[in-house]
Design a protein around this nucleic acid. Sequence first.
DNA 1: GGCCAGGTGATGG
DNA 2: CCATCACATGGC
Length: 282
Amino acid sequence: MMTQTIQLDFAYDFDRVLDRLSMDPIVSLSKENRIVQIPFGNSVILSLQAIGTTEMPVFKVEGIESETQLQWLKEIFHFDRSLEPIHQHFAETNLAEVFNEHVGTPIVRDFSLYATLMKSIIHQQLNLSFAHTLTTRFVHTFGHEVNGVWFYPTPEQIGQLQVEQLRELQFSTRKAEYVIGVSQAIASGELNLEKLALEDEATIMQTLIKYRGIGPWTAQSFLLFGLGKPDLFPLADIGLQNALKKLWNLSEKPKPEEIASHFPQWSPFLSYASLYLWRSIE
DNA sequence: GGCCAGGTGATGG
DNA sequence: CCATCACATGGC
């Protein structure tokens, strides 16, 4: 098994990454050893360990079998683009303080596009704690485990389920229908997420929103956490509304139009504003 | 015990 | 086209 070393030339706080990943009960990691195990495809496990500092980030990678895998890993962990221009951009904005508190914090993508979609649908309108419970049950019941690392089930498997099988895990009837329906569309080849990912953002949004259970919030989550797009701010998100309410000392949650009025100033890096605001209330 | 949660689709004007 | 409502159930 090949071991590789990756060195970055910009500040990158891997311990923050581990903190965030540790909120996902499916992810296998050790904060102490600064290592995370990453499921790739159907059964490959890659491991990523930090052996440097935030200012001098160095990583040890194991399990890589091809250049394609290495490139994928770099994109997933945001190794392929510097965070410094983004922090510079926000230094003169009303989010400067928030950004100062999150120096070197990257957008880490989900480990598969299908996982992003399922997770987003499951998370709709639920508190994080219960959403994590449902996601864990979903993966533990229908996915598979290799050496302690969990792999999401395939769309083919989920597409064949009956609503009742997800009801047993305490999914609502409607949510079960969403999850199964979207999985069927993917399994049949009608919806090809990898191919869709190559299209422009407007096309991706329009395509996804046609499916029952995918609204603007879920489609934007797909762009942000699935594809790592830099300029998304899901206005419908209650967490972001609450984060801004707190930051601006408001008595009520700010209205979407009020939030959107700041977009010209924050763009083209709205996703980082979203991410850090979420973290500010976690 | 009531209100809220990292929304969405259906319904009715 | 926009406002309102049901959905399900845990967390606090």
